[in-house]
């Protein structure tokens, strides 16, 4: 049953290789001059890619019950809610709301 899936060596070693390669690309990309917001976007996309590999293969989410994947996605969703709404304050502190101005 899903709970007892044995992950094949091919997957585990493949995942580790992919992670190391992605790390090298991440470090390499940081030495190239990428204009401001895009350097962060590149770095974070690579980080998300690596995180997906860890979660999907090392943590076995591909083979596991879907509820576990949902749990992880929920944590992300609520993190995004927290930071998203907080930024609506901190980024717009000195901007008057159009109704008032």
């Amino acid at each position: 049953m899903s709970g007892h899936h044995i992950i094949s060596l091919k997957y585990l070693l493949g995942a580790a290789t992919a992670l190391v390669v992605l790390t090298i690309i991440t470090v390499g990309a940081s030495f190239i001059e990428i204009p401001r917001p895009f350097d962060l976007i590149v770095a974070l996309s690579l980080a998300f890619g690596k995180a997906t590999v860890v979660a999907a293969i090392f943590m076995g989410l591909i083979w596991d019950k879907k509820i576990n994947t949902m749990a992880l996605l929920f944590s992300l969703l609520f993190f995004i809610i927290m930071i998203g709404i907080t930024l609506l304050d901190t980024l717009y502190r000195d901007v008057p709301f159009w109704i008032y101005s």
Binding site: L88, T90, Y92, V95, P96, F97, I99, Y100
Partner: peptide, 11 residues
């Protein structure tokens, strides 16, 4: 509390 006007309206 001094949060932005935008966020007060949204909240």
């Amino acid at each position: 509390s001094g949060q932005s006007e935008l966020s007060t309206v949204i909240f």
